[in-house]
Amino acid sequence: MTNVVGSRRGAFDYLLIAFFVLACVVMVYPFWHTIVTSLITFTEYAESLILLWPRSIDLSGYQFVIEQGSILRPLQVTIFIAIVGTACSLLATTIAGYVLSKRFRFSALIVNLILITMFVHPGLIPTYINYRNLGLLNTLAVYIVNGLIIPFYFVIMRTYYLSFPTDIEDAAEIDGCSVVQRIFLVVIPLSKAILAAIGLFFAVQYWNTFSPSLFFIRDQDKKTIQEYLFRIISRAVGDDAEETAAVVFPESVKAANILIATVPIVLVYPFLQKHFVKGVMLGALKG
C-alpha cells in the first residue's frame, strides 16, 4: 500500500508472488486432499502418489458414515449448541457492551469485573467443582454457560458503542422509547455489521467445542462432533485394523467424518472473512 512509489516489478516481486502462491497451496492442499480421499476408491487411493483430482467419484465413505449413523447425534448436539449458544452469546454481549458503554455509578467497577477475568483463570478443577455444585455437569447448558461471554468480544462491542452517535439515541428517547425499546429498535439494527462479525466468531467457537465436551459431559448422547471425531482419530492410532476396513477403507471414512465436521465453517467463512478483520481491529486497537 505504502510502497507504490516507483512501481516497477523486480526479481523480488516475483519471488514474493512465488512464495505466497506456495503458501496458499500449503494452506489449501490438506483440505483438498481430504476432499479427494473421501470421494475415491481404495484402489485409486493406494495407486496414487499424490492426490490431485478424483478419477471417479465413489460416495461409499459418506454412505458408510450415514448408514452407521453414530455421527448423527453429535451432529445434532453441535448444531443445537451452535444456534442457541450463538443467540445467547450475542444477546448477552450486546446488552453488556451497550449498557456498560453508558456511565452510571457502578459501570466502571463492572467493566473491571469483566476485564479481570481475561487474566485470572481459576483452572480446570475449581471450574469443574463449581459446575458440579451448580448442577451443570452433564447438561447441554454447560456448553453455553461455559462460552457465554468472551471478555475480548465484550471489549469490541463496548468500544463500538462508546463511539456510537448519541443524537440518534437522544431522538429515540425524546420520542418516548424506553431503554429496552431503544436497544432492540435502534441500537441493534444500527450495529448489524459488528453483530454479524461477532456472531460468526461465536458460531465457529461453539461449532469447534471440544474440551468442554471432554471435561464436563459424561453421556455419549450429549457429546459434540469434535469429541466424536477425536474418538475416531485416536482410536485409529492404536489399531489400524478397523472393522470398517472390510467394507470401505478407513481413510475415506475418516475423511468423510472430517469433512462433515468442517463443512459448516467453510460455508460461513466467506461471510466471516468480510467482517472479521474490522471486528478484530476495533477490539485490538482500542481495547
Binding site: T34, A255, I265, L272
Partner: peptide, 29 residues
C-alpha cells in the same frame, strides 16, 4: 486473496487438523 487464504486455518479445530495430519503423514499410504 492471499490474506483470506492464510486466515482460513485459524477457524478449523485442532481435532480436524489432527485428523488431516494423520492421513497426510500416515506411514502406509
Amino acid at each position: 486473496f492471499t490474506q483470506s487464504v492464510l486466515y482460513l486455518p485459524h477457524f478449523i479445530s485442532w481435532v480436524v487438523i489432527a485428523g488431516i495430519m494423520y492421513n497426510l503423514l500416515s506411514p502406509d499410504l
